[in-house]
């Protein structure tokens, strides 16, 4: 198996809201990278976690499945997930898979942050 072609960096916005910047290819093989980023973002300690898909190149159905498992972890901690930076195509995929009913989608970082504050 080849190493996943993805980076997931963590930074903090105002009021300490963590955001994971996702760049590259999101597939099921990325799960260890995403879970490491989740821990670096404080795990479930923050009430909100933002996912920035602005650098997303590619995502397959395994990647969607991985987001569902992240969602389960977050919900266990009563943490909200929000996504932004999705292209029109991947926004439709979130709607098709009905993932948008559990992960709120915003047009921009500012909009996601304003919901989280």
């Amino acid at each position: 198996m080849s190493a996943p072609a993805v980076t997931m960096d963590v930074r903090r916005l105002g009021h300490g809201v963590p955001v994971i910047d996702i760049k590259g290819d999101v597939t099921a093989a990325c799960e260890p990278v995403l879970m490491s980023a989740y821990e670096a973002a404080g795990g479930g300690k923050a009430p909100w976690l933002l996912l920035n898909f602005g650098g997303l190149d590619y995502m397959n159905s395994g990647g969607i499945g991985m987001l569902v498992t992240l969602l389960v972890r977050a919900k266990r901690q009563r943490q909200h997930l929000a996504a932004y930076g999705l292209s029109e195509h991947y926004r439709e995929i979130f709607e098709l898979t009905r993932l948008d009913e559990a992960i709120a989608i915003y047009d921009s970082e500012q909009a996601a942050l304003s919901a989280a504050r």
Partner: peptide
């Protein structure tokens, strides 16, 4: 998303806008 306050109302500085990913992956 429709209820979120605009950036000006929440006192953000220079917006770090997320450039949406490629339109046709």
């Amino acid at each position: 998303p429709d209820e979120a306050a605009p950036a000006e109302q929440i006192g953000l500085g220079a917006p770090e806008a997320a450039a949406p990913a490629s339109a046709h992956p």
